[in-house]
Amino acid sequence: MHEVTSNAHTGIDTAAIREAARNLDDGAVTAGYQGNREEVIAMLNGALATELVCILRYKRHYYTVSGANNGAIKAEFLEHALEEQEHADLLAERIVQLNGKPDFNPASLTERSHAEYNDAEDVAAMVKANLIAERVAIESYRQMLARIGDSDPTTRQMLVGIMAKEEEHADDMRDLLE
């Protein structure tokens, strides 16, 4: 059987691609990866810390908000906590795909997080703290996307999806303030 070394229509060197793919130690990271892997992993670990702090903040608010008229707010806090957990899972999975190690160390979590933890007692203060944190997350993702550019399309697509959800969360919190 004759092996084609390049596709005449696309100019893709299939023989070179196949040979490079035999380096199994790099997992999903191929020779054509153009991002700065260490920098991307560091950014993703910062985002992971942020999401973990957001989960804890939303969970605390969920469990401590009280009052007969606050059922909808309580439900919103829980929904956001669960969605932030999905974001954390996506980030951790991507870090591993890039041959990095997700940092779940609780000892340094708050200092690595872009957003702050909040233990407010008042419902309005809780909502305000969550809105601020969502705005911090949105801007952090925006800056990460600018930094990554087109060098890592998979990470970029994931971050765009997470940022869209954070914008939805911010909108939800703003609506609750009114």
Rank of each mutant, 00 (worst) to 15 (best):
G27K: 11
E93N: 09
L159Q: 09
G149W: 01
V29M: 03
G27S: 06
P102V: 04
I148P: 05
M158C: 02
L91V: 09
F104A: 10
E19W: 11
A170S: 13
M1Y: 01
R135K: 15
I41V: 12
E19T: 10
P106T: 11
T5Y: 00
L78Q: 13
E19G: 06
R37Y: 01
M158R: 04
N69W: 05
A146Y: 01
I132L: 10
V40M: 00
N23Y: 13
A8D: 09
T155F: 00
V123I: 07
V160N: 14
E86D: 12
C54P: 14
T155A: 00
K165Y: 08
A170K: 13
D122F: 06
R147Q: 02
K165I: 06
L91M: 05
E93V: 01
L177N: 13
E111S: 15
V4S: 04
E84Y: 10
E116Y: 15
R112C: 06
L78K: 12
T64H: 11
D25I: 04
A164I: 08
Q34V: 03
A68Y: 10
A146M: 04
R112D: 13
A124F: 10
I148V: 04
L131R: 14
E111T: 07
N45A: 05
N36D: 14
A47W: 00
G71W: 15
I148L: 00
K128R: 12
N105I: 03
A16I: 05
Y58M: 07
Y33N: 04
L177R: 14
Y63E: 12
E79S: 15
E121I: 06
I73Y: 00
T10N: 01
A31C: 06
G35V: 11
M43R: 02
A120P: 06
A68H: 10
